[in-house]
């Protein structure tokens, strides 16, 4: 679905998205500690850009929990990236919405900008080399196929 973002760049306001996981992101965990993007290198990662106010994001949480439960043993790491300028809500949202995978937050949305997450929700599938191999606004069959492929 990257072409959608390309069109958004051409026709609207967003920047061309990064094709690999940016190394210099300022993601923070629930205690406001810096989470280096390098931490995710060497793993198959699904980054879920979301926010508590985003209904579509909230609707997707149960499916992401099932995804995490199904593939964690095969090396998949699901990470929720909370679009927020405050870390206060990360742990609270995780509790309220039953999120069982890690939650980090993206102060000032700088990381979201880098990867072209101009609309929420957005799922990025990242392979072990840090390459973004798939992006989607839904957890659908195509996204699952991309995950299965990189887990092989």
């Amino acid at each position: 679905m990257r072409w959608l973002v390309l069109l958004a760049v051409a026709c609207h306001t967003t920047a061309p998205p990064a094709t690999t996981l940016p190394r210099d992101g300022q993601l923070l965990d629930g205690s406001a500690a810096f989470v280096p993007a390098e931490r995710y290198r060497g793993k198959v990662v699904v980054l879920d850009f979301w926010a508590g106010w985003c209904e579509d994001c909230r609707k997707m949480v149960p499916a992401l929990v099932r995804l995490h439960d199904a593939f964690a043993s095969r090396g998949l790491l699901v990470v929720a990236v909370l679009s927020s300028d405050s870390g206060c809500c990360a742990s609270r949202y995780a509790h309220d919405f039953g999120i069982t995978y890690p939650v980090v937050f993206d102060p000032e949305l700088a990381y979201s900008d880098r990867v072209g997450a101009s609309e929420l929700p957005l799922l990025l599938v990242i392979d072990r080399t840090g390459t973004i191999v798939h992006r989607s606004r839904h957890l659908d069959e195509d996204t699952l196929a991309a995950i299965r492929k990189v887990l092989e």
Partner: peptide, 11 residues
């Protein structure tokens, strides 16, 4: 359209 670099696109 073609992505020329992470910050450049031509269409």
């Amino acid at each position: 359209s073609q992505l020329l670099s992470p910050t450049t696109v031509i269409d």
